[in-house]
Design a protein around this nucleic acid. Structure first.
Lengths: 362, 362
DNA sequence: CGACTCCATGTATACGGTTACATAAGGATG
DNA sequence: CATCCTTATGTAACCGTATACATGGAGTCG
């Protein structure tokens, strides 16, 4: 219809490869080969073709190109949302690497809804993306995993590649690449940091059972407690989503419910930390003088609030995902390799050694 | 080649509409119509087809669909970078609205390079996106504008629509929609806010001649000064890019060069404000006690540093862009309408009334 | 100098849908 | 009951590119 309308108003069909061929006085095959770079040498012909292309302002039709069997030019990334800085940074890495490899980037968002995620994968399958990169944590639900595994197989059958980025593998028989980063290790390290400064009652914000990312972070938190022989109080693990507002809410509710029973706060990510900090301040609690606070992610704004946190190589995650997906030979049915990127603490000024005293009432 | 490899390893061609038709015992046309929703009623047939689709796990080939003349299913957005929150929020709006309209979103990044931007527009043209949304400020260069105008015409000829989002129109004869927001008004308002509290020497950070966005903001700044009969000192306009590090640099250099000759700072955007705040603190200048600070954009992290700023309806910008582009009749050659969204001040705690005294040496 | 090789180019088909047009069946109307 | 209209479906012609195969000319070597 769009085409029809254009031809109505201007009588001008979009210029095709045939127009170029006619103008250059060669066959369409020659034009196609020259433009695809599938051509050893051509000299004069090449010149004629390129001039015709320029004069006619010709651009190839990606749909036709894709249909005719050329390799796909696009890479798909699926994230919760684009404004979440965590995802945005991974997406940036994907973008960067995709551009380097001469690929286009298709972005889908799910809003954290598993149904939408599955639907979006389907969409990307229609779109014939060369690889589909799924970013972020996910519920550890068996039915869900099975459906995703099926999609992975369907993608593989179509010559595409599923990449799980920052989430656990689906199983050894599922053709999906995995690029993870060390959630548990980072959480362990930063919890140890707090413990080594004397803190014993550390509030963990953002626990969420069966969500893989918070689960891994909680695991690191618990492991550090255990290794330092500090008793684990489940009451210190507060449930909540990985968002700023939730951070605020969790602290507010906690302080409203009773006297303050913690000296440090380990926020599940930097957004929670920002919200928590705001809530603490609203209760006249200063960070770090009255309460120590740490986060996870090391987003740029965290430098502004002097937050000690765990650095996650977001961009590198995205870049690695693309690199692995495109580098992997199409027909390989060998076991799917995985990669685990490291994380490390960034110490700023949101933590103070605990001076021995009973926690006061906040 | 990918296809070949798949068929080698499994002998399985991807399932096509013909397979579905065969299985359902109908013609391909019927399948196509049912799946496209171009079908009034079918009852039994519809059931058979949908079952076959499910059983074969069929997904349509978007390339073939696009080639055959179906309306495009994709919307393209081109931004500087995905991690810049300003762009990310606009992109989120685009995503949201695109999803509502059942479209896919293709994202291109330019890194602020006009050449890459033009190249990316070309790419999106190949991809036959239904509309191409160009976000962000741009250099006001005539040659560049002319090339972009040509692309706009080429897109229009192909039934696509160029949308300029947060940047000025190209000219009345160029078929491009414009969705702007009120930079000048916002800058005027927030400058007036500072002036009304007694500030007279207001440093502007992030001037950049011939870049449209900072230019508009500077214009609002100057207009407010003029209306309040405060003499305009060009020396108070500091040049720099719209980035965090630049904010830091500008303040640091300024304070290193001589005594502090301002009582308030108007940062060209929130990122600059964050950097500037950091630099001020490094010089033992507190915000707002010693120096008042305001920004522009109202990004979420700005709440954490209590920044008074100008709210920009980022998401609404993106959503409006998509809505207008898709709503506009394809064959219309009428004058291209523009939209200007409003901005407003958000007062937090980064500004204090000026107590009359000579600015001290910082 | 002839046979063979290699490379540039042309010819024609396939890719997987959509849709204009044709056709058949069923219902309404006189 | 004949006619006309409507609706569901089938048939076949594209859409614009890539590429397998065919062809022709130049270069090489015996």
């Amino acid at each position: 219809m769009g085409r029809r309308a254009a031809s109505d108003s201007g009588g001008r069909r979009p210029t095709t490869i045939r127009d170029v061929a006619a103008r250059a006085g060669v066959s369409v095959a020659t034009v196609s080969r020259i433009l695809s770079g599938t051509y050893p040498g051509a000299a004069a012909t090449r010149g004629k073709v390129l001039r015709a292309v320029r004069e006619l302002d010709y651009v190839a039709n990606a749909n036709a190109r894709g249909l005719a069997g050329a390799r796909s030019r696009s890479v798909a990334i699926i994230v919760n949302s684009v404004i979440s800085p965590h995802y945005a940074h991974v997406a940036q890495g994907v973008q960067t690497q995709a551009a380097i490899e001469g690929k286009l980037c298709i972005v889908g968002t799910t809003g954290g809804d598993p149904e939408r995620e599955l639907a979006t994968v389907q969409l990307m399958r229609e779109e014939h993306a060369e690889c589909v990169i799924l970013v972020g944590n996910v519920i550890a639900d068996d039915a869900y995993r099975e459906r995703m595994a099926n999609y992975a197989r369907a993608l593989a059958a179509a010559g595409s590649q599923l990449v799980l980025c920052g989430r656990p593998a689906l199983g050894s028989d599922v053709p999906a690449l995995v690029v993870e980063y060390d959630n548990t290790g980072g959480a362990y390290a930063i919890t140890s940091h707090l413990l080594s400064l004397g803190h014993r009652r550390i509030l963990f914000l953002g626990r969420r059972d069966s969500y893989t990312t918070p689960e891994s972070r909680v695991a690191g938190y618990r492991a550090a407690l255990a290794d330092h022989r500090v008793p684990h109080d489940p009451g210190l693990e507060v449930e909540g989503r990985m968002e700023r507002d939730e951070g605020y809410r969790m602290i507010r509710d906690r302080l409203a419910a009773g006297p303050r029973d913690f000296t440090a706060v380990f926020a599940g990510n930097d957004l929670i930390a920002a919200g928590a900090r705001q809530a603490l301040r609203a209760h006249e609690l200063r960070v770090p003088e009255d309460v120590s606070l740490v986060g996870f992610d090391d987003l740029p704004p965290s430098a502004d609030i002097d937050l000690t946190t765990v650095h996650v190589p977001h961009e590198e995650l995205g870049r690695t995902a693309v690199r692995m997906a495109l580098g992997r030979p199409r027909d390989s049915t060998a076991a799917v390799p995985g990669v685990m990127l490291g994380t490390h603490i960034v110490v700023r000024d949101s933590v103070r050694p605990l001076v021995r005293e009973e926690p006061r009432v906040g």
